[in-house]
Nucleic acid binder design. Structure first.
Length: 468
RNA sequence: GGCGCCAUAGCCAAGUGGCUAAGGCAGGAGCCUGCAAAGCUCUGAUCCCCGGUUCGAAUCCGGGUGGCGCCUCCA
């Protein structure tokens, strides 16, 4: 099965034809680790987690790299504010990021380079640019990339940078040849975040690390491209990706990536989530209230390229939808899965192969759930059917990363042992009352359970309960 | 000012030239049930407006209206 993706540089959907047959090299622009991850980080990570899972399922050998920018102005500011060391801050937030992403069931990247651990690669890269005359040094020691040396500058984002407009926005730096030029190396004095290299003490600029890391980990030797797919948030297209591409072009003569994918934004009340608007919120706070898998499901129920308007009402409607998958899973509880239904598997994979159409994929999942329930109603003892359903759910969990948890526990989240015992005792009492046809008592117990946030359902297999 | 995205039922959301416009949530009717819940069945939109292209458009083109984003760190 072929994979199609929307290439945000070509601005159209194209067939994925990897540089090396059956292999896919992916680089995702990761977070700057100066604070906790917010929903936008989650959306980006989820989008390209789906990319990785889909390509793997299609049989590609996938190598995904995601960097951590662990040296930057904001981190330095945080150091000054908190009195903590660079490493203390960045290690703390890297771990937090990884924990949050794990809660969302995001597969770990195969390579996780850090800027501070890539200084040699960055240094080499800057040296290459200096040698080729694509970079110049200012009197203060800063090194800038000379965008005029790259005739293709602007072809990634199609941004024609208006010199005057740019001047008004970008801070003027003395000695800079063009406002489009950007810092590769920022000179600094002796300190924890300064690195002593042959062209002077300093620290890397933001754009250079990605180019250097890609060069280091994937190589950009004789191919036309360094990697297959370069991914990131829509806001990175310009200037970040434009600059990365330009540097790599100048330094290696090779295009940095064959394909580009950009995910849309998470908005709150129709506006971009951002700190300056005061409407952003951290993933860790959402995770205190909602299961990570629910947040995952909610965020990937909308196509990755669209804007996503986050709100609690929709999140709760997503929960009801996801609950249905787990209710089906409960019906085939502890049944060993065999082979998934061929047509179902194909349809699901086809949807995801069409530029990661996860919305369509979930529609197919819903149809499968519906059909499975219908058939189970008719043939509750059909073991082969149960094995197939179980395998279908397993396939969903591999491809989409939802539905992989224990179905009983899913409906008992946040219920303590004592509570559980109390619930089960009440259910027993109710069963006794029912036996005695004392429905008044039975209904009273049901109301009592409902007040505890517990819903019950009588089945041929006894009374089941769920925490709502 | 430059570049770009979006507008589909009460809400969320696929579809981007041609069978009856996916799917979910909410609502209504029914089956099941002691009654419920869960599950199942049935039930809703001609696709922001105007014009054009076409045998045929939600889907392409032009013009509006409304919303959002990038151009400064940003997923």
């Amino acid at each position: 099965m072929d994979f199609y993706l929307f290439d945000s540089v070509k601005r159209k959907k194209v067939k994925f034809e990897p540089i090396k047959e059956n292999e896919a090299s992916i680089y995702v622009c990761g977070p700057t680790v100066y604070d906790d991850a917010h929903l936008g980080h989650a959306r980006s990570a989820l989008s390209f987690d789906l990319l990785k899972r889909t390509l793997k399922e299609l049989g590609f050998r996938v190598t995904l790299a995601k960097n951590f920018t662990d040296i930057d102005d904001k981190i330095i500011n945080k150091m000054k504010e908190s009195g903590k060391s660079l490493k203390e801050i960045t290690n703390f937030y890297i771990n937090r990021y990884l924990e949050d992403m794990e809660a969302l069931n995001i597969l770990r990247a195969d390579i996780e380079p850090k800027a501070t651990e890539s200084i040699d690669a960055i240094k080499e890269f800057i040296n290459k640019l200096l040698k080729k005359g694509c970079a110049y040094k200012l009197e203060n020691g800063d090194i800038y990339f000379d965008t005029s040396k790259d005739l293709k500058y602007g072809t990634i984002s199609k941004m024609v940078v208006d010199e005057e407009a740019t001047i008004s926005r970008v801070e003027e730096v003395e000695g800079k040849k063009s406002p489009k030029d950007f810092a590769l190396w920022k000179a600094c004095e002796e300190s924890e975040y300064c690195f002593d290299v042959e062209f002077g003490k300093g620290r890397p600029g933001w754009h250079i690390e990605c180019s250097a890391m890609i060069y280091k980990h994937f190589g950009c030797k004789s191919n036309d491209y360094c990697i297959d797919i370069h991914c990131g948030g829509a806001d990175l297209l310009f200037p970040h990706h434009e600059n990365e591409a330009s540097q790599t072009r100048c330094a290696t003569g090779v295009e940095i990536a064959k394909y580009w994918m950009h995910n849309g934004f998470v908005q709150i009340d129709g506006e971009k989530m951002s700190k300056s608007l005061g409407n952003s919120f951290f993933l860790k706070d959402a995770l205190k209230v909602y299961d990570g898998e629910l947040i995952r499901f909610y965020l990937i129920s909308v196509h990755y390229r669209n804007d996503f308007n986050f709100n609690e009402v929709d999140l709760l409607s997503s929960k009801k939808r996801l609950d249905k998958l787990y209710r089906l899973k409960k019906r085939v509880y502890q049944i060993t899965s065999k082979e998934p239904n061929k047509e179902f598997k194909k349809a699901l994979l086809e949807a995801m192969s069409d530029d990661l159409n996860s919305s369509k994929a979930f529609a197919i999942v819903d149809e499968m759930i519906n059909e499975a329930n219908e058939r189970l109603d008719k043939e509750p003892k059909n073991r082969a059917l149960k094995q197939e359903i179980s395998a279908n759910i397993e396939f969903i969990s591999n491809l989409l990363g939802v539905g992989g948890k224990d179905a009983i526990k899913w409906f008992q989240q946040g219920v303590s042992k004592e509570e559980k015992e109390k619930i089960e005792k009440l259910i027993q009492k109710r069963a006794q009352a029912k036996k005695e046809k004392n429905f008044e008592v039975a209904d009273k117990i049901r109301d009592e359970l409902k007040e505890m946030g517990v819903a019950i359902m009588d089945t041929s297999d006894g009374t089941k309960w769920e925490k709502i």
